[in-house]
């Protein structure tokens, strides 16, 4: 069957099987930021934005995303022009092995897209589904809080595109 959706702002059509899982379809489409961790919806490494909501792509049927807007880390920033969250993760050392980073960045982006002044508790809640087993949790909370005030300028520079 055909799956039509928007991937990182661009319309895309893929041939999929009705039983395909979104995680597999995205990785096959080249979105290697989408990581397979637990593969059962617990760890958050595969999180992507589906119509603005962060969800575990390992427990989403690909066919369900017909006409949806999907954002992965590939759609957030580039090495030359990182998203404020990506830069903050670098500046605050919120990465060691990096495997949980894409999912954490997606969950953090979902928070900052609707709340530019989050409290520490709001950051903790937004990232409650993203397990990290090496860096720990303090540095990434600091990174998200540091990125928040930079979102306004980022939106202005990117012409409002989040």
């Amino acid at each position: 069957m055909e799956l039509n959706f928007s991937l990182n702002g661009k319309p895309i059509t893929l041939e999929i099987a009705p039983s395909d899982i979104l995680l597999d379809v995205l990785r096959k489409a080249g979105m290697k930021s989408v990581k397979r961790g637990c593969n059962e919806g617990f760890c958050g490494a595969c999180a992507v934005l589906i119509d603005g909501k962060p969800r575990n792509s390992c427990i989403v049927m690909a066919a369900h995303c017909e006409s949806s807007e999907i954002i992965t880390v590939e759609g957030m920033g580039t090495p030359d022009h990182p998203h404020p969250l990506q830069q903050a993760f670098v500046d605050h050392g919120a990465t060691q092995c990096g495997y949980c980073n894409p999912g954490s960045l997606i969950a953090a982006k979902a928070l900052l897209d609707r709340n530019s002044h989050p409290t520490t508790d709001e950051v903790k809640l937004a990232l409650d589904g993203n397990l990290c087993r090496c860096t720990g949790y303090v540095k990434r909370i600091e990174a998200v809080l540091a990125a928040a005030p930079k979102m306004k300028k980022h939106l202005a520079n990117t012409g409002g595109s989040k």
């Binding site: 919806g41 617990f42 958050g44 999180a47 589906i50 909501k53 962060p54 969800r55 575990n56 427990i59 989403v60 999912g103 969950a107 809640l125 937004a126 990232l127 409650d128 589904g129 993203n130």
Partner: peptide, 9 residues
């Protein structure tokens, strides 16, 4: 229920 990522599903 679960986490933010689960509750969104």
């Amino acid at each position: 229920i679960g986490s933010t990522l689960i509750r969104n599903s």
